[in-house]
Structure formats: structure tokens, C-alpha cells
């Protein structure tokens, strides 16, 4: 019963962070700020949902696979964000309303 409660709390937390990420994706003004919202919130949201499923499954082979997906998302999500940001920063299609000057 307690284990189920913890799993449901984690599920709700994951769903909430996915919601925040999606609202940020729609509300924020340009590509870089949208990336801020989506990267952080999706990493934590996916992590929380996977941890919840791992708690639900207990000590099982499926948990190991879920843990591999968790590690994979934890490594690749920031990397993908970095690649997209670099492409947008260096490309000709830079959004015109972004202040690209660098402050020291």
C-alpha cells in the first residue's frame, strides 16, 4: 500500500513536470528559451515516471531495462539540447528577435 502510494506520487510528479515542459514549449518567446523548459522538465518527468514504474515492478528484469532507459534519457536529453542549440546559434536561420550579443 505504501509502495503504491509512493509510485502514484512519482507518477503525478512526472505528469506535472511534463505539463510544465509543454506549457513552456508553447508560451516562451524563442527557440533557446523553449529549450530551457523542455530539456529540464522532460528529463525529470521521464525520470520520475520510470522510477515510479521501477518501484511498481519491484526487483525484476524489467526494472533493469527501465533503468537502462532512464540512464539513456539522462545522458542523451541534455546532449540533444546542446546539439540543437549549437545548430540554431551557428546557422543562418537564427531567429531575428534574439539578442545574440555575448555579455562577459
Amino acid at each position: 500500500m505504501l509502495i503504491n502510494g509512493v509510485a502514484i506520487i512519482m507518477l503525478i510528479g512526472g505528469a506535472f513536470f511534463f505539463l510544465v515542459g509543454t506549457i513552456g514549449l508553447i508560451r516562451l518567446p524563442d527557440a533557446f528559451t523553449r529549450m530551457h523548459a523542455t530539456t529540464k522538465c522532460d528529463t525529470l518527468g521521464a525520470g520520475m515516471i520510470l522510477v515510479s514504474l521501477m518501484i511498481n515492478q519491484g526487483f525484476h528484469m524489467i526494472s533493469v531495462k527501465l533503468f537502462i532507459i532512464l540512464l539513456f534519457i539522462l545522458v542523451t536529453n541534455p546532449t540533444a539540447a546542446h546539439i540543437i542549440a549549437k545548430a540554431a546559434y551557428n546557422s543562418q536561420h537564427m531567429p531575428t528577435d534574439v539578442d545574440s550579443s555575448i555579455k562577459e
Binding site: A31, T38, D42, G45, A46
Partner: peptide, 24 residues
């Protein structure tokens, strides 16, 4: 999305969400 980067961000987000959908 006005620029191509916005679309790539959205597709990247979609991928994570759909992977979670498949697990659930």
C-alpha cells in the same frame, strides 16, 4: 514553429513523451 530549431525541439520532446507512452 517559426524557425526550424523550434520544430526540432518539439520533435525531440515528442520522442521522449512517446517513449514514455510505450513504457506505460
Amino acid at each position: 514553429g517559426p524557425s526550424a530549431a523550434d520544430r526540432v525541439v518539439a520533435i525531440n520532446v515528442l520522442t521522449t513523451k512517446i517513449a514514455m507512452l510505450i513504457v506505460l
